[in-house]
Simulated scan of single mutants.
Amino acid sequence: MILFTCWFYLTASGSKIRYVLADTLITTQHRDWAKYLIGSDQLNERVKNYWASFEQMGEVRDKGLVKLEPQPVTETAVVKPPPVELVKVEAISGPNFKGFLMTISDPKKLKIVVPNKVGMGEKVSSMVKRTGAIAGVNGGGFIDPEWKGNGFQPEGIVISGGQIYYNDGTLESTQQVVGIDKDGRMVAGKYKVSELLKMGVQEAVSFSPRFIVNGEGLVKSQADGWGIAPRTAMAQTKDGSILFAIVDGRQKHSIGATLYDIQEIFLSHGAITAANLDGGASSVLVHNNEIVNKPSSQYGERYLPTAWLAFDNPQDVHVANIWAGLDINKIDPSKWMK
């Protein structure tokens, strides 16, 4: 035990593992436990540095490498290519994790959907079934007191169908967003809300960081990967296809993944842009009305305020704004409606 303690706290290799474990705890409801591994001062500094790096990642501007323009038709192009499947789900894995990669071939088929009951979030599987969606994953962050919140109050901004449904700032406030514009291009990073409207962003939620920009990964190593955890993340390839990575964690079959792990999976599939979505116990993938992955919570799916859903005809789907007319400062995210 003495030898282990000396190795764990006094050697470079031991400290590397110690900080990975601390980062893993930081992503859970037991964040304070990390102080026993690295001390309170280092814990606070670690969290501060992560948020600062996330802010910097969000400020790198997109060079527009995604090409969505239709290819010109020539006289020799008489054979039509076979139709591309809208939704494709495949298994992914790594040394410590198992999960799924979902590909959406047409980004304009995605829509942000919100709950249909004021004062309470909704499970993604319920949103999928209620709206007739083909598939869905969890969306942006939300205010979650003691990790026991009702899933009703988002953090940041929610845009659906080109309309602002929720905004905890002003039009000139900056938000970390993950979204899709009117042309089907993924928009991620830090933007003023007024910028998002001018850019024609149609669907968006708030979360961070954006960790791939212009085809370059911004997470430089596993040590910077924000710990091992269940993950949900979104990316776009050069041809416009949207990728969702959903990784199980905190379970025997899958401990979890770092952001570096997710980044490497996305880059290997040709991602140009990628950003993190809410993870942990929120991570869920629903396809054909079945939960495909294994959410980490012992209670199953969480109640959430937003989800990315894929539809054959999203223009026919009506999403009511349940926050319209509410004073968001008076929402109590700890109280459940019955």
Results as ranks from 00 to 15, higher is better:
residue 302 R to G: 09
residue 183 D to R: 14
residue 30 H to A: 15
residue 131 T to A: 10
residue 50 Y to L: 13
residue 311 F to A: 00
residue 28 T to C: 11
residue 145 P to R: 00
residue 166 Y to N: 03
residue 95 P to V: 10
residue 82 P to F: 09
residue 205 V to P: 04
residue 270 G to T: 00
residue 122 E to P: 07
residue 170 T to D: 09
residue 65 L to A: 04
residue 201 V to G: 01
residue 2 I to S: 15
residue 322 I to N: 10
residue 81 P to E: 13
residue 106 D to G: 08
residue 147 W to D: 06
residue 301 E to L: 04
residue 242 I to G: 04
residue 306 T to Y: 06
residue 50 Y to A: 09
residue 75 E to D: 07
residue 28 T to F: 11
residue 142 F to W: 15
residue 230 P to H: 04
residue 257 A to E: 11
residue 30 H to T: 12
residue 287 H to F: 10
residue 184 G to V: 09
residue 160 S to Q: 09
residue 214 N to F: 03
residue 123 K to T: 10
residue 197 L to E: 14
residue 151 G to H: 08
residue 103 T to C: 08
residue 119 G to E: 06
residue 337 M to G: 14
residue 173 S to K: 10
residue 74 T to Y: 04
residue 280 G to R: 08
residue 136 G to M: 11
residue 325 G to V: 13
residue 18 R to H: 12
residue 174 T to P: 05
residue 197 L to A: 13
residue 296 S to A: 15
residue 201 V to C: 02
residue 294 K to E: 14
residue 157 I to H: 02
residue 242 I to K: 04
residue 30 H to F: 15
residue 177 V to F: 10
residue 162 G to P: 03
residue 82 P to Y: 06
residue 137 V to C: 00
residue 193 V to H: 05
residue 269 H to S: 01
residue 252 K to H: 11
residue 39 G to M: 05
residue 41 D to R: 14
residue 156 G to C: 10
residue 246 I to P: 00
residue 123 K to E: 13
residue 4 F to N: 01
residue 116 N to T: 15
residue 34 A to W: 07
residue 60 V to M: 11
residue 44 N to S: 13
residue 113 V to T: 13
residue 280 G to S: 07
residue 91 A to Q: 14
residue 250 R to H: 12
residue 185 R to T: 11
residue 106 D to V: 07
residue 320 A to G: 03
residue 146 E to Y: 13
residue 187 V to G: 10
residue 100 F to N: 12
residue 161 G to Y: 09
residue 123 K to N: 06
residue 194 S to F: 10
residue 289 N to M: 08
residue 181 D to W: 09
residue 149 G to K: 07
residue 259 L to W: 13
residue 290 E to N: 09
residue 200 G to T: 07
residue 141 G to T: 12
residue 151 G to M: 12
residue 334 S to V: 08
residue 167 N to H: 11
residue 27 T to G: 02
residue 128 V to E: 12
residue 307 A to Y: 03
residue 224 D to R: 15
residue 89 V to P: 01
residue 326 L to H: 08
residue 85 E to G: 03
residue 132 G to T: 09
residue 133 A to L: 00
residue 9 Y to L: 02
residue 68 L to S: 02
residue 212 I to Y: 00
residue 160 S to G: 13
residue 316 D to Y: 03
residue 323 W to Y: 15
residue 286 V to C: 05
residue 136 G to D: 12
residue 71 Q to I: 11
residue 59 E to P: 02
residue 79 V to W: 05
residue 188 A to L: 05
residue 205 V to T: 07
residue 69 E to Y: 04
residue 284 V to E: 02
residue 265 I to M: 01
residue 49 N to V: 05
residue 116 N to C: 04
residue 147 W to I: 03
residue 118 V to Y: 01
residue 47 V to K: 11
residue 215 G to D: 00
residue 226 W to G: 06
residue 160 S to D: 06
residue 18 R to Y: 11
residue 191 Y to M: 05
residue 130 R to S: 14
residue 241 S to V: 05
residue 296 S to G: 08
residue 219 V to S: 05
residue 279 G to D: 06
residue 81 P to W: 04
residue 295 P to G: 06
residue 296 S to W: 02
residue 1 M to W: 10
residue 301 E to A: 04
residue 280 G to T: 08
residue 61 R to L: 13
residue 308 W to D: 00
residue 15 S to P: 01
residue 215 G to I: 01
residue 253 H to Y: 09
residue 238 K to N: 02
residue 233 A to D: 03
residue 211 F to R: 01
residue 180 I to H: 12
residue 139 G to R: 04
residue 320 A to D: 15
residue 136 G to I: 10
residue 321 N to W: 13
residue 281 A to E: 13
residue 17 I to G: 01
residue 241 S to H: 03
residue 65 L to K: 08
residue 125 S to Q: 01
